[in-house]
Simulated assay, not measured.
Amino acid sequence: MRKEQVDILNKNFKKSDKIHKDHEDRITHIENDLQRSATRDAIAQNYSQASTYANVIIIAGYVAFFNLWHVLIGKSEDWIVVSSGISAIISLTAFVTFEVFKIFSSTNFLIESDKVVKDRKRSLDEIAKMNEIRKLATIKYWKIQIYTTIIFGAIGTILVLAGYIQGLFEILF
């Protein structure tokens, strides 16, 4: 009889150990999810700050470009002035279009997230899924826009620089 009681106690201890282990695993999983969430939030905040800073620098670059470009009007060959202006306008249009897309995308996301939060039948996990879809769409569109912005901005800058170099040669020679 004693052996049976010991066996039952051992079984109960094993069950208890398994329950305890499962509980620890769940706690670890929750802690990992919280850490991931905190990391994602930090990354999103850093991206937002970096994006704002980059936008300020880019806008300052466009302001400087158009100020230098304006000086070239009537002082450099027309094809340089027109080509550099068109290139810069294409670059600026790509940049502004992407920023408008981000505003539109973020606004739609916030509206849809609000609907999910208000509807108790829907899971809050839907918000994370919607955000992932939004981020993927933004990245795809960003790849197109960044190349367009940089390439045409560089072409315009090179042409303005060429106009100034041409003017310098005319002054020196």
Rank of each mutant, 00 (worst) to 15 (best):
A54W: 14
R40W: 12
H70M: 04
A44D: 14
I57Y: 11
D78Y: 04
H20Y: 14
F98T: 00
G85Q: 07
V81Y: 06
F65V: 01
W69Y: 05
I89A: 03
A54V: 09
I89Q: 01
I43L: 07
D41A: 14
I43R: 05
L72E: 00
V71K: 03
R36T: 08
I43V: 14
G85L: 03
T97S: 13
A64K: 08
R26Y: 04
R26C: 07
D25P: 02
L72Q: 01
D78P: 08
N67D: 06
L68M: 12
D25M: 06
S48L: 02
D25N: 10
F66L: 06
G61I: 02
Q45R: 15
T52I: 06
N55W: 12
A54Y: 14
D22P: 02
A42D: 12
S48I: 04
K21Y: 15
A50T: 11
N32W: 08
A54S: 09
W79R: 10
A50S: 13
Q49S: 08
N67W: 10
K75C: 02
H20V: 10
V81L: 06
R26N: 07
I86E: 01
I59R: 14
A60L: 09
V96G: 00
T28M: 07
I30H: 10
A94M: 10
H29N: 09
G85K: 06
R40S: 08
N32R: 11
V71G: 01
D25H: 04
V82N: 13
S48R: 10
T52M: 11
I27V: 12
L34C: 06
D22H: 11
N55L: 13
R36G: 04
I80V: 15
G85E: 04
A64Y: 11
I80M: 12
N67H: 03
I89W: 07
A94T: 06
F65P: 00
Y53Q: 13
V81W: 05
V96H: 05
Y62G: 00
A50V: 11
R40H: 07
K75R: 14
A44S: 11
S84Y: 02
A50D: 12
Y62W: 11
N46A: 08
I57N: 13
A38F: 02
W79P: 06
V96E: 04
I86A: 03
V71R: 03
I80K: 03
D22L: 15
I86K: 02
I90V: 15
E31T: 08
R26K: 11
E31I: 06
I57R: 15
I59N: 13
Y47L: 13
I73E: 06
A50L: 13
D33G: 09
D33E: 14
R36F: 15
I30G: 02
A38I: 03
I80A: 01
